[in-house]
Nucleic acid binder design. Structure first.
Lengths: 187, 187
DNA sequence: CCAGTGACTGGCACTACGTGTCACTCGACT
DNA sequence: AGTCGAGTGACACGTAGTGCCAGTCACTGG
């Protein structure tokens, strides 16, 4: 029935997000997702390798945006400041898509299987950030630690932004990175 | 056939580790594991909730050891020093069980499905460490960041220990935490 | 000695995830 | 009109994981 391919893909993502919200991830079958999207179950697996991946489509874009920002940052910035800058920019993707970001993050937070996938994506992305830092001349081991540390701060800020939307993601990011300094100062 | 239960459990773990090494995780079926362990496939799922969990049995012990160490640390230590102390103690579990630890870590490193589970365990353990720090009076947000940062250093040290066994895990830990200080100093 | 109890197991049926394969449709291009 | 490729429907299949029931073994109290 559908013509463009990309259209069916979007319908599948939308259907999956709705169903995961309505009855939970584990209680949703791939057949149900496909049915609501108006396609065959087999087609679901043509667009997404598995039931979880349907919620992690933007990851490639996010990674590209982040690593690009790291590469383009002013030369004299310290590693953690480079990352803060990159997170600020990338964070706009989250803020602009809040109607999609929020339910997505909430479902992931309460579903172990999705949390696992999320952590894997984060780890892969963190490794990409570390590599981008190394290409800026940051020493090998330091780059990995900086990427992990920075990501922890980013994650904490994103979660705080979901829990308390009264402040901007930017404000939460500033807070988290300030906390990092405090940690360095006292411990 | 088997009598004690705990015995079958150990045989299953051993059989799984062997098979994952011989032909890889994805090419191994739960039926094969059960067969090598001399039990029914159904019995496998009585001892372990899924095919991955069979490699993550010691996690509860490790968590208990780590949180205990954090709780028992001298009062005046700074958060990251508390963690370094705890990792040193817990690291002995790894070093003493190297014949099991090494192949296990290598298989996890090359198997995406196992890496996901490993990351999830690490995240849960990190959260437990953060909570233990909070109970020592470390401020809320700082505790989370310290736990993540410390864990990143521990993970880096463990990986370095696998790649370069010529030095002790303790030495690698010292190196990683020194790098952390450097990161704080310069960025 | 024996009946009962609880932990562990074997075996069967079943649902759901994910893959391989083939034939079909539809639009684009020549 | 004919061809070509991308996307799809449909069917068969292997494997992970669950529910259920019956059977075995060690242990305990009478």
């Amino acid at each position: 029935m559908p013509r463009s391919g990309a259209e069916a893909r979007r319908r599948l993502q939308r259907a999956a997000l709705e169903l995961y919200q309505e009855r939970g991830f584990d209680q949703t079958t791939t057949a149900e997702i496909a049915a609501r999207a108006g396609v065959n179950e087999r087609t679901f697996f043509r667009h997404f390798p598995d039931k979880r991946e349907v919620l992690f489509d933007g990851e490639a874009d996010l990674r590209a945006a982040l690593t690009q920002e790291v590469a383009d940052a002013p030369e004299d910035l310290r590693p953690l400041d480079v990352l803060l800058r990159a997170f600020r920019k990338a964070g706009r993707i989250l803020e602009d898509n809040r109607p999609f970001s929020e339910p997505r993050l909430k479902i992931i937070a309460v579903t172990p299987a999705l949390r696992e996938r999320d952590l894997a994506k984060a780890a892969s992305l963190t490794e990409a950030l570390a590599e981008a830092l190394r290409q800026r001349g940051v020493p090998d081991r330091l780059a990995g630690l900086a990427a992990h540390t920075g990501w922890a701060a980013f994650h904490q800020a994103a979660q705080a932004w979901i829990d308390d939307p009264s402040q901007s993601l930017d404000a939460h990011l500033t807070q988290a990175f300030t906390d990092l300094r405090a940690l360095s100062a006292t411990g």
